[in-house]
Computed example of a mutant assay.
Amino acid sequence: MENEGDKTTFMAVQMEKLVHHLETMRIAEYVELMERPARVIFLNFVAGISRGLGIAIGATLIFAIMLEFLRRLILLHIPGIGNFIAEVMHIVEMKNGKF
């Protein structure tokens, strides 16, 4: 009899741990989300737009900072480096159709 009581207590404790673990994983919210595919599509669409804008803005800022750095490096008139950077910038501007 005591053995059955211990097993029942053990099972109750294990079930409580399982329930707590599932609650921390937010399984119920995930299942609810999966039941509404339109919501999943909308969330993925918004996430994709956010990532795309973030990449575009980040790349623009990085390239603008690099370009400003190169222009300031040219103004220092360091032999060899200044001419090389000026040539690279001239090639880039030709490819972009500025010349």
Rank of each mutant, 00 (worst) to 15 (best):
H20E: 13
P37K: 00
E29D: 12
L33I: 06
L22A: 14
Q14P: 00
R39Y: 05
R36D: 00
A12Q: 13
G5M: 10
L22E: 11
F10M: 03
M25R: 09
M15H: 10
N3Q: 08
T8K: 10
R26D: 02
L18A: 15
T24H: 09
E23R: 12
A38C: 06
N3H: 13
E4K: 11
M25I: 08
E23Q: 08
E35S: 07
T24C: 07
Y30P: 01
K17G: 12
V13C: 04
M25G: 03
E29V: 02
L33T: 04
E35F: 00
H21K: 13
T24G: 06
R36G: 00
I27T: 06
H21S: 15
D6R: 14
V19R: 14
R36M: 03
V31A: 07
M11F: 13
M25K: 08
I27Y: 03
V19Q: 15
L33R: 07
E32V: 03
L33W: 04
E35D: 10
T24D: 09
A38K: 05
H21I: 02
V31G: 08
T8N: 15
E32H: 07
A28S: 08
T8A: 13
P37A: 01
M11C: 11
L33F: 02
K17N: 11
M25Q: 14
E23I: 06
E4G: 09
E16R: 06
T24Q: 13
E4F: 11
V13L: 04
I27N: 12
E29W: 04
K17L: 12
G5P: 00
K7Y: 01
H21R: 14
F10R: 03
E35Q: 09
Q14Y: 02
R36I: 00
E4Y: 13
I27G: 05
E16V: 10
R26G: 00
L33E: 02
P37T: 00
T24N: 13
A28D: 09
E29R: 06
E23N: 14
L22M: 13
V19D: 08
K7Q: 03
T8W: 11
R36F: 01
T9L: 15
A28E: 05
M15G: 08
I27M: 07
F10T: 08
L18M: 15
G5C: 02
K7I: 05
R39E: 04
L18F: 12
A12S: 12
R36N: 09
K17E: 13
A38V: 00
K17C: 12
K7N: 06
M34N: 03
R39K: 13
P37C: 00
H20K: 09
L18Q: 15
M34L: 03
D6H: 04
H21N: 14
T8H: 04
K17Q: 10
H20P: 01
V13G: 03
Q14A: 10
A28T: 06
M25A: 11
V19W: 05
E23P: 01
Q14N: 02
M34S: 00
A28Y: 03
M25H: 07
A28C: 07
M34R: 02
V13K: 08
R39G: 03
E16K: 15
I27P: 04
A38E: 01
L22P: 02
N3C: 12
V13N: 11
H20S: 10
M25N: 15
K17A: 10
R36E: 01
M15N: 05
M15W: 11
H20M: 08
